[in-house]
Amino acid sequence: NKASVVANQLIPINTALTLIMMKAEVVTPMGIPAEEIPKLVGMQVNRAVPLGTTLMPDMVKNYE
């Protein structure tokens, strides 16, 4: 099973992601793959992301 990106803390709306906000975890359903973490740094979330939430592509602005 591949790990996904999971919020390590509450991430407020429009916050630019940093490494300490994210962790890799095997979850179902899968979200953004953990190997994308370096690419996510500096990208903004378009909603508040609660602690423990799996990051999905539609939660990150301009994620492709």
Rank of each mutant, 00 (worst) to 15 (best):
S4Q: 03
S4P: 00
S4K: 02
V5I: 11
V6M: 13
V6H: 04
V6D: 00
V6K: 06
A7S: 06
A7Y: 01
A7T: 12
N8E: 04
Q9A: 05
L10I: 13
L10K: 13
L10W: 14
L10G: 11
L10D: 10
I11S: 01
I11D: 00
P12E: 15
P12H: 07
P12F: 11
P12L: 13
I13E: 08
N14Y: 09
N14F: 12
T15R: 05
T15S: 09
T15Q: 04
A16H: 14
T18N: 13
T18R: 15
L19I: 09
L19Y: 06
L19W: 09
L19A: 09
I20V: 14
I20H: 04
M21P: 01
M21Q: 08
M22E: 00
M22T: 03
M22P: 00
M22S: 01
K23S: 12
K23Y: 06
K23D: 04
A24L: 04
A24W: 05
A24H: 05
E25G: 07
E25Q: 06
E25F: 05
V26A: 10
V26P: 06
V27M: 07
V27T: 14
V27Y: 05
T28N: 14
T28F: 15
T28E: 06
T28L: 06
P29Y: 04
P29R: 04
P29E: 09
M30D: 09
G31N: 01
G31A: 04
I32D: 01
I32N: 00
I32H: 01
I32P: 00
P33Q: 04
P33C: 03
A34K: 05
A34Q: 05
A34L: 05
A34S: 11
E35F: 05
E36S: 06
E36R: 13
E36L: 07
E36N: 10
E36C: 02
I37N: 02
P38M: 03
K39D: 06
K39G: 04
K39A: 15
L40R: 00
V41T: 08
G42K: 08
G42W: 04
M43G: 06
Q44F: 09
V45S: 06
V45P: 04
N46G: 12
N46H: 14
N46K: 10
R47Q: 04
R47L: 05
A48C: 03
A48T: 06
V49D: 01
V49T: 06
V49K: 00
V49I: 14
P50N: 09
L51A: 04
L51M: 14
L51G: 11
G52L: 13
G52K: 04
G52N: 15
T53Y: 05
T54L: 04
L55A: 01
M56V: 11
M56T: 12
P57E: 12
P57Y: 12
P57C: 03
P57R: 05
D58P: 07
M59N: 07
V60I: 04
V60Q: 01
V60L: 10
N62M: 11
N62W: 05
Y63R: 02
